[in-house]
Design a protein around this nucleic acid. Structure first.
Lengths: 108, 108
DNA sequence: AATATGCGCAACCATTTGATTGCGCAAGTT
DNA sequence: AACTTGCGCAATCAAATGGTTGCGCATATT
């Protein structure tokens, strides 16, 4: 069984990020997506599979056509990871502010 | 010349994400970082190089020791990319709210 | 029924990646 | 001066990756 990739590995590839951006505008079929890229339709199909497996995209079969759409909820995994740094950053800023306040009051 | 990686490719690897998390707590030297991992010191050193090259980490030489620290500003590259989806999402929610409001007023 | 279209599976290939090991240089210690 | 420590360079290797091509199945059209 192939190793499933996490969401960070999924967006590491520039082509996949471009696919995500495209689908953020609206659902599309594999062929419609492939028209925006210079590589083969099959290459795009592989990327779609990777993005679907890690739940960044959802697919909906309608006859022989598949509609792929963005699952924006999954992007929150990345946001949650980044949130940790935001919190650390704001803590540091608070500490810096405290130090600056003390410096001001000491000068008075 | 080797291809430089972008920030998304840099954080795609679980080991590098763990290094980033570690350094978010405070600056460390390569050997100190390597102690938290089971792989060789040289493997960690390679990851540090990758993270430094794409500016996620900053290094500061002090004698024979190097102190690596997180450059939190660079994480904003990822946040900015995600911000595009947040805006698209909030647009859709606004549209959904409008529809719901109309449904409510039509029932009254 | 025959043909066209959508699209994934599989095999293949070149490149990239992440790890290890050995080595060597610079700085610190004895 | 000799030894120790910090740490990157280079070579090597196995695995992963991203692309292509050929093929085949299901659905849609003629």
């Amino acid at each position: 069984m192939e190793t499933r990739r996490d969401v960070f590995q999924a967006i590491a590839d520039p082509t996949r990020r471009a696919i995500i951006m495209l689908l953020a505008l609206g659902a599309l079929t594999p062929n419609a997506i492939a028209q925006h890229f210079n590589s083969s339709r099959q290459a795009v199909s592989k990327h779609l599979r990777i993005l679907t497996e890690c739940e960044i995209l959802r697919q909906e079969q309608q006859g022989r056509e598949i509609h792929y759409q963005l699952n924006a909820d999954k992007m929150k995994d990345i946001e949650n990871w980044l949130e940790q740094f935001r919190q650390m950053l704001s803590k540091r800023f608070e500490q810096l502010d405290t130090v600056l306040e003390q410096l001001k009051s000491n000068k008075k």
